[in-house]
């Protein structure tokens, strides 16, 4: 085994290797997470739109589809923005005084939103999927200081999930 006159040096080297491994593991996980959460929803929306236009050819679809297109283009616009906007560009998202038709959407259908966050969103006047789908980077920055851990809204893709849910109920 390790002789006693080397034990301190070996322990220091092992500690250094451990700390180095920790840093590399943390960095690698961050990189993988950033890669996984990159914007990639446009093809899914296009496929969904195509599918809905095929199935509802006789229905009065144009208005619905144009709303879906508006939502999709809003998301694409956001995709082109830098991920980290400066703090000065924070903007409160548009709110509603009350849910439309007196009935709010079930925001908990968005993965990452629980009862507490849903109630916080409702307190901020956010009740519907299309409101979340219209968020821009500045809105997200504003919200992250108030209702969510930093980076969570983008990482869990609330906006993209809301686009899908909004187009599903439209």
């Amino acid at each position: 085994m390790i002789p006693l006159d080397h034990i301190i040096e070996v322990a220091l080297l092992v500690l250094a290797a451990y700390l180095g491994g920790c840093l590399i593991g943390y960095g690698a996980h961050l990189a993988v997470r950033a890669y996984k959460s990159r914007p990639q929803l446009a093809p899914a929306i296009a496929a969904r739109e195509e599918k809905s236009s095929k199935t509802t050819k006789t229905a009065p679809a144009p208005a619905t589809r144009s709303a879906a297109r508006r939502l999709a283009s809003a998301v694409e616009r956001e995709d082109t923005e830098p991920v980290q906007a400066p703090a000065s560009s924070q903007l409160r998202p548009p709110d509603l005084p009350a849910p439309r038709d007196g009935k709010a959407d079930n925001l908990r259908a968005i993965k990452g939103i629980g009862p507490k966050t849903e109630s916080a969103l409702n307190d901020l006047g956010i009740y519907h999927y299309d409101q979340i789908a219209a968020w821009t980077g500045a809105h997200i920055d504003w919200l992250e200081g108030r209702i969510a851990v930093k980076g969570r809204i983008r990482r869990e893709q609330w906006v993209e999930q809301a686009v899908l849910l909004a187009t599903a109920i439209a």
Partner: peptide, 14 residues
């Protein structure tokens, strides 16, 4: 020893 420590650190960091 250092390789094992680095591996453990990698998992811990991840």
């Amino acid at each position: 020893f250092m390789a094992v420590a680095a591996l453990v650190g990698l998992v811990t960091g991840w």
